[in-house]
């Protein structure tokens, strides 16, 4: 097991290098730092001196991959590639355009992001699986058909409408919770209830329908018939047998997401004014702060790879037939 995990982590290295190369090419080769400087400074203030100053402030005034003028080892290290991309492997992201340390910022914003993403994830999983089981329990009845229709309609509505509509109804018309904002500690619950509920409801449609088909695929298998023949109640069959066996495909989609919870949700956080990583990313995109976007891309892919690894490990937990080697 340990050997497997270590090997998988080593496999991750070339992938991270690839991610880094893609972002490097995107941010520094497709557009030269000069272009970015011109764009950031705006049309009026573009002078060669201003561009040079902008680049020097951010360390973009060096050669891209090879610094022929530097002495010794610095030929390779005193470059944009090394300074901006290689350093990311040590989680050293440098500074954002407003001068703040990105790594520090990320650490302080992870909390609020998790505070909203974790309850959403757990509650969402619980609600969708229960809803899907309910539909399966009443399969081939009007309730099932109605539920599926509801799911298809729900997944055809843009997530934006759930947020806008929910905010309007709950916060404005019914005045139940504050429209947006955030407070540290337990006080945050007040602000978090609505976004969590909205994203759970918004996610029901597609996931419940998908889980339902998974359950329905299992329910016609021989072992389920045997269980029924033994005289087990339908509920017991569903929970003890069908749910357990449908876990593998469910886990494939679910466990990958767990590490990504740290990244937060772009839409929810920006609508509800929660100072997490999602709103950080959106702000960076709107301010065209490339350093932050680059860092988030890197962190995102690290978390994704961790998620894949967790998925594999979770298989061994729910399915004893799976051996990692």
């Amino acid at each position: 097991m340990i050997a497997y995990i270590v090997r998988r982590l080593l496999y991750a290295l070339p992938i991270l290098i690839g991610v880094n190369l893609i972002t490097f090419v995107l941010f520094f080769v497709v557009n030269s730092p000069d272009d970015m400087a011109r764009m950031q400074l705006g049309a009026k203030r573009v002078t060669p001196e201003a561009i040079e100053k902008w680049k020097a402030e951010r360390g973009y005034d060096r050669p891209l991959v090879w610094n022929a003028e530097a002495p010794g080892l610095a030929k390779a290290t005193d470059t944009i590639l090394f300074d901006k991309s290689v350093r990311m492997f040590a989680f050293d992201f440098g500074r954002a355009d407003d001068g703040r340390d990105i790594a520090l910022e990320i650490r302080s914003r992870m909390g609020p992001s998790l505070a909203i993403a974790l309850p959403t994830f757990l509650l969402g999983l619980f609600v969708t699986v229960s809803f899907a089981l309910l539909l399966v329990f009443f399969r081939h009845t009007a309730l099932d058909v109605g539920g599926v229709v509801l799911c298809v309609v729900a997944m055809s509505i843009s997530g934006l409408f759930y947020i806008i509509g929910g905010q309007y109804l709950v916060s404005k018309v019914w005045n139940l919770v504050p429209i947006s904002g955030y407070a540290p500690g337990l006080d945050a619950a007040r602000f978090l209830i609505l976004p969590v509920l909205i994203s759970v409801i918004g996610g029901i449609g597609s996931s419940a329908r998908w889980y339902r088909t998974l359950f329905l695929e299992e329910i016609n298998k021989d072992y389920v018939r045997t269980a029924r023949a033994k005289g087990l109640s339908e509920l017991r069959v569903l929970f003890r047998h069908v749910l357990k066996n449908a876990m593998i495909p469910i886990l494939t989609g679910v466990v990958v997401v767990i590490p990504m919870l740290f990244m937060g949700s772009l839409l929810l956080e920006s609508f509800f004014g929660i100072p997490g990583l999602g709103s950080y990313t959106i702000d960076a995109i709107n301010a065209q702060d490339f350093a932050v976007v680059r860092s988030m891309v890197f962190i995102g892919s690290v978390l994704y790879i961790v998620g894949l690894l967790l998925t594999d490990i979770s298989y061994t937990l729910v399915d004893p037939r799976v051996r990692l080697n």
């Binding site: 893609i22 995107l26 557009n31 272009d35 976007v293 995102g300």
Partner: peptide, 22 residues
């Protein structure tokens, strides 16, 4: 695998930002 491991929205964001500059 490399492309997949970058969260979709962020990859799109990065590329669109670059396209805007161009």
């Amino acid at each position: 695998t490399v492309l997949n491991s970058i969260p979709g929205v962020l990859l799109i964001a990065a590329m669109v930002l670059m396209m805007q500059v161009v």
